[in-house]
Write a protein that binds this DNA or RNA. Structure first.
Length: 424
RNA sequence: GGAGGCGUCGCCUAGUCUGGUCCAUGGCGCCCGCCUGCUAAGCGGGAGCGGUCUUAAAGCCGCACGCGGGUUCAAAUCCCGCCGCCUCCGCCA
């Protein structure tokens, strides 16, 4: 949620943010009206309630005729209080529902525009020139089959399209990547976490995934539970409704979990291989910190992502995601996109968001500072989205004979092997 | 899944049967003063959340006894639903 005080004192800022996001501005006026209604009905309720309480005390002490007279008055009052309470609840619910639909205030530094209006911040490494090397690169699925590492046919047989099995070297590669990611995270001071991948509605809603993103989320009807699309959800909800010790901030976690996505809006897109799938595993970084430190922490998270990609020796670039493509919670978002040889373009492999106090307000996560309780800032960033990384490793490090070079950083986690090799 | 028990201000706890002086008891721990050259002890004070007023503090009001409803003039207390924890049984990786 955005800050209500800010909404009252500077609604134009909220309007500007909504415009940058490509969202409705009218909602700001609706909100202001609803807020006014809510406040006046609260005031009314409190007045009545105070009177009722006062009378109640007298009733307790009175007796006989006096008591009867008091009871008559207080009975009348009770009806009024009930009415006022209903009005207040309704006004509060309406205001809250509206407020939760408004996205986070965008960072003024973020590029304004839609999906294609991102800014390229930096580019690292050089895409290989396969022509010069004298062979045509195979795509990741072909390589995966040669290596006996990826089986999408049986994935489809058992679970449907966009499912896969990792087998042999493929399965070992995932475990190696997870271990590399977790050991680096540990070095950087993150606490390892294995969170639940199934969460209740408040956790999903609080993290901001039940708005426009709802059609992409798996819902288990029978139990009213959600399969998370990212560990960000259980990691953010971990400290929900808690007051954190300001002295112990920042809290940093590295969570390993499966991710489930319906990919409802992407029929026909990236249908080949495991680039876009309904389930994959991921190591996610999540940070709770002082809002004043959030921007700096965001840069750090990006730095960790870059360090991981560097270790895997992938050519990539960093983009500053445009305001219209931020999602509900982020004020600013940086994506790392690695070069995908068979598509001759950069594709997203990590994403890090600064959600400022937006999620913390929705989830009730605060810390006690010099001026009382205040929401903390939350940030998240991908360390290793396994399937995407496998795609990139296979395609970028492939050799003419179908083998795949393993970057030195990863070798210790694969028993010292220097390459994945074709199976018969 | 079945049976039973429990859920009170950081922790423990009184109160629930028999609704109203509960605006919730006491202890421990914690914080701030005072005091004794330090520490402990002792004495005094403070500590939930939201709103409002104020330069600020104080103050005032509301909410809060797991959560949500209901009954009642009045609910920690009675009724219903839900959630969580514990014990036993069953089932199970």
């Amino acid at each position: 949620m955005i800050d209500v005080k800010l909404l009252r004192t500077n609604p134009d800022l909220v309007r500007a943010s909504q415009t940058a996001r490509g969202e409705s501005v009218e909602i700001v006026d609706e909100l202001l009206a609803a807020d006014e209604q809510r406040r006046s009905s609260i005031a009314n309720y409190e007045t009545l309630r105070a009177e009722q309480k006062d009378l109640g005390r007298h009733v307790a002490k009175a007796s006989g005729d006096e008591k009867a007279a008091l009871l008559a008055r207080t009975k009348e009052l009770a009806a009024e209080v009930k009415q006022a309470q209903a009005t207040t609840d309704e006004a509060g619910t309406r205001f809250d529902a509206l407020l939760r639909r408004v996205g986070n205030l965008v960072d003024p530094a973020a590029p304004v525009g839609g999906e294609d209006d991102f800014a390229v911040l930096e580019t690292h490494g050089t895409p290989r020139d396969f022509e010069a090397e004298g062979f045509t690169p195979r795509d990741h699925l072909e390589l995966g089959e040669i290596l006996g590492a990826i089986d999408t046919e049986r994935g489809a047989k058992v679970s449907g399209s966009r499912f896969y099995y990792l087998i042999g070297q493929g399965a070992e590669l995932e475990l190696a990547l997870i271990n590399l990611a977790m050991s680096k995270a540990r070095e950087w001071g993150f606490t390892a976490m294995i969170p639940p991948a199934l969460v209740n509605p408040p956790a999903m809603e609080g993290t901001g995934f039940l708005g426009q993103a709802a059609q992409d989320v798996y819902h288990l009807e029978a139990d009213d539970m959600y399969l998370v699309g990212t560990a960000e959800v259980p990691m953010a909800a971990y400290h929900s409704d808690e007051i954190l010790d300001a002295k112990r901030l920042p809290l940093r976690y590295a969570g390993y979990s499966p991710c489930y996505r319906r990919e409802a809006g992407s029929y026909g897109k990236d249908t080949r291989g495991i680039f876009r799938v309904h389930w994959f595993d991921k190591v996610e970084m999540f940070v709770y910190c002082d809002p004043a430190d959030a921007a700096e922490m965001h840069t750090k998270l990006l730095g960790y992502e870059k360090a991981f990609i560097d270790a895997l020796e992938l050519p990539y670039r960093v983009i500053d995601v445009a305001t219209g493509d931020l999602g509900l919670s982020a004020a600013r978002k940086y994506d790392c996109e690695a070069w995908l040889p068979t598509q001759q373009r950069y594709r997203e492999i990590t994403s890090t968001s600064n959600c400022t106090e937006f999620q913390a307000r929705r989830l009730g996560i605060r810390s006690r500072g010099s001026d009382g309780l205040a929401p903390v800032a939350t940030l998240n960033g991908t360390l290793c989205a396994v399937t995407r990384i496998i795609v990139m490793l296979l395609e970028n490090h492939q050799q003419a004979d179908g083998s795949v070079r393993i970057p030195p950083a990863l070798q210790p986690f694969l028993g010292g092997r220097e390459a994945l090799t074709p199976v018969d």
